[in-house]
Amino acid sequence: MIEIDNLHKKFGDTEVLKGVSLSIAPGEVVSILGASGSGKSTLMRCMNGLAGLNGGSLLIDGLDVSKPRELREIRKRCATVFQHFNLYPHLSVLDNITLAPMDVLGRKKAEVEAEAYALLKQVGLADRADAYPGQLSGGQKQRIGICRALAMQPRYLLLDEVTSALDPEMTGEVLDVLAALARSGTTMIFVTHEIAFAREISSRIVFLDDGVVRADMPTDRFFAEDGGYGDERIARFLAKMRNK
């Protein structure tokens, strides 16, 4: 369970998150939508402890991100897939995937490697285990990024615009992997600009607007004429995204 209560985050004098409250239960697939600069990435960074909080609280399974000891435990449960992949260029694909399970969870190499091969197979990259990130296309890199996160067997998967840095012809291969994950019951918090896809896979939509949650409702409701669409700002955002 992720429980965010009245979360505030400032950079210098500018407040980026202005009292965000949100809770996400295990098994949910929640998409976070919002204009660029609305604070989506910052919210994600607060969840995995890359950004500290200036107010409010953020608990994951009852653990507090602002306590270093508890954050360490949180990081074993939340894995992030990054917009720019952030793979380790000096490590092979296999080592990229197995590093954290071995180093952080202290698991055995043979075991973790077997799982890594299984994950690679799932994302259609079984033959690239020995390649280096620099040898892969963007779409392949991102599928490895997803494998790296899944290798931690996380309870929560955080995805921040994972297709934004990809060429359009490569988004499909990544979205397919994500759709399969969503069906498998993995808890996903999914920041995206792929509105149609968000609508397809998520059970709930959260709309962030200038650092506040402007809408938080089941997907059907959000896209209904009298639901999220009824909100003038949301309607404008959706119209803009559709015209892109």
């Binding site: 990081r75 992030t80 990054f82 952030n86 793979l87 260029p89 000096h90 954290a100 952080v104 931690m152």
Partner: peptide, 27 residues
């Protein structure tokens, strides 16, 4: 070294020490 990798490593829970040894130093 690209900062994104270091953030990724931190987010996965690697200690600063092992980030230094396994990610920063070799590169």
């Amino acid at each position: 070294i690209d900062r994104g990798q270091l953030e990724a490593a931190r987010s996965f829970g690697h200690s600063e020490r092992s980030i230094l040894r396994k990610i920063i130093a070799p590169q």
